[in-house]
Design a protein around this nucleic acid. Sequence first.
DNA 1: CTGAAAGCGCTAACAT
DNA 2: ATGTTAGCGCTTTCAG
Lengths: 333, 333
Amino acid sequence: MPGITEVAALAKVSTATVSRALNGKGHVSEATRRRVQSAAYELGYVISANASALATGRTKNVGVVIPFLGRWFFSAVIAGAESALLERGYDLTLYNLGGGRDERRSVFEHFLLRKRVDAVIAVCLQLSADEVGHLLDLGVPIVGVGAPLPGLRTVGVDDAAMARVACEHLIGLGHRRIAHIGAERDSAPPTGRLLGYEAALVLAGLPTSAALCTAADPTLPGGYRAAQTLLADARARPTALFAASDEMAIGAILAAHDLGLDVPRDVSVIGIDDHELSAFFGLSTIAQFPAEQGRRAVEYLMDELHPRGLVPVPVLPLRFELVVRTSTGACPD
Amino acid sequence: MPGITEVAALAKVSTATVSRALNGKGHVSEATRRRVQSAAYELGYVISANASALATGRTKNVGVVIPFLGRWFFSAVIAGAESALLERGYDLTLYNLGGGRDERRSVFEHFLLRKRVDAVIAVCLQLSADEVGHLLDLGVPIVGVGAPLPGLRTVGVDDAAMARVACEHLIGLGHRRIAHIGAERDSAPPTGRLLGYEAALVLAGLPTSAALCTAADPTLPGGYRAAQTLLADARARPTALFAASDEMAIGAILAAHDLGLDVPRDVSVIGIDDHELSAFFGLSTIAQFPAEQGRRAVEYLMDELHPRGLVPVPVLPLRFELVVRTSTGACPD
DNA sequence: CTGAAAGCGCTAACAT
DNA sequence: ATGTTAGCGCTTTCAG
């Protein structure tokens, strides 16, 4: 493995010039720049990230912290972030909190602190004050994605607005008994999606009730069970279900089928996410774009890391979009 | 951020001793070791990974390369690897090849080469000769997971054996017309799972036929479509479906339902993986344990990195296990 | 068992 | 525009 010295020798310049030529910093004449570049290429020179990091204090590496692996949303965020980072020559190191309290502590107390990362992206994290403290101690830019983090800049869509749009779609179809599947009604703080659901009903002059809110695991089986409960009683049955995520919504569709109900003739179902399986199930939903959110988080961090102008890129509200498929239809009467 | 010098000063020893005490290398008296440790603790000292890496040539970081993000299997492998690495003080940096040819090239030609990683884990990768070359050029230990890589040590289960056990379960239930959903029959090289399927049929004296093999995308919709084709013709209908993955198998179950068929009364379905959703769908399957595979890959690498004895840990065949749920039953007749 | 000192490979003043 | 020269923060001979 050739080092910068070999390149310098071949190009007949000093190592400093090699460094400048290869990093595009400082002034180097076109001629020498070319000479250096071809020397580097010829030798198959690759910079030692560590040496460079030690000298500059920048690692070209960002840490991504996630609650656990395997949820579609997280994967998509990571994929978006990863690709945005790659473009900029950055690595992504992954910190998965899914392994229990000890691993979690370990990540915050040891791993993140080793000056390995120039910045961190916290995906859908709910952190203790201590943990936020550790994060801030790093002294590097931090951005949250998908979940508002107290005291940290967060990229994400407006949960309440998404939920409202979803429910307004249902209301527009004539539904008046609309159930909510998702977080507990009295969870503190209440989730944005539940708030949006309630707001939509209230604005439409519809009654909300505890009976219409069913708490569920944020998974397909969770949605299935919740919908089973909700749809069991033919008399009091809601005509539409709003699920706070597509996975739950898909579970709800399956539950309706198993109860012999037709979707959307007997009951409409809408979710949030536009999960990869939603199209297959014909699920109407509010698409959010997690890969874009990951990408956006990176852009924000890069702006902090390499301020390019006086005006920092404002963190725009992220887009979402109603996608109408076949799981929602006019209210039966 | 205190450095090693501050710790040395507080403990009234040299930086060399601090280094030795904290790394457990070389001889340090119990007394000073304790002194150093409490000094380090008191100052909240965390080693600079970069400086250490530069000095030792070891980064305590392993690269994990995956074809793309978001498949259950990959996530599980990564989670297993991540947790095993964490225990050993290693970081995991993720290289996602899912972003198109350019990103892929970039990963192999630039990113992996920066001496950032002490080892690499290649998850389910199909690599060109060039890419394998780049990997080998790194001069670091490499291990594949889940897909045999020419010239590289690979951790994984025996695909053919898994498929055989699955099909033998079906055969044991009396099924004689068993279809295969998965890879193309004439793909080169043929997949282990297809081979295992054929072997099981042949061993049982059952005929195999092109009509029973349906190529499918390795996804839920892929399995759905394949099963639709297979089950469409009531006369020639197979009584059992073997899908090469649970996602396809779940799609097949859904297809059967939509055709008005009962599973398993009219048709049995079995998959491979024990996907997180399989239990919900009552899918019989062959469980493999991806997290264990990730963990195993790490153990193998650590053994190469820190040879502890003369005998390298042999790479044992990885376990798998038939899980019988409700999607398989006796052959109707 | 401990300390002094020479790097690891690169970058960033500071000179020229 | 380019070269010289200190480091970046740690590890590791080599002495003592």
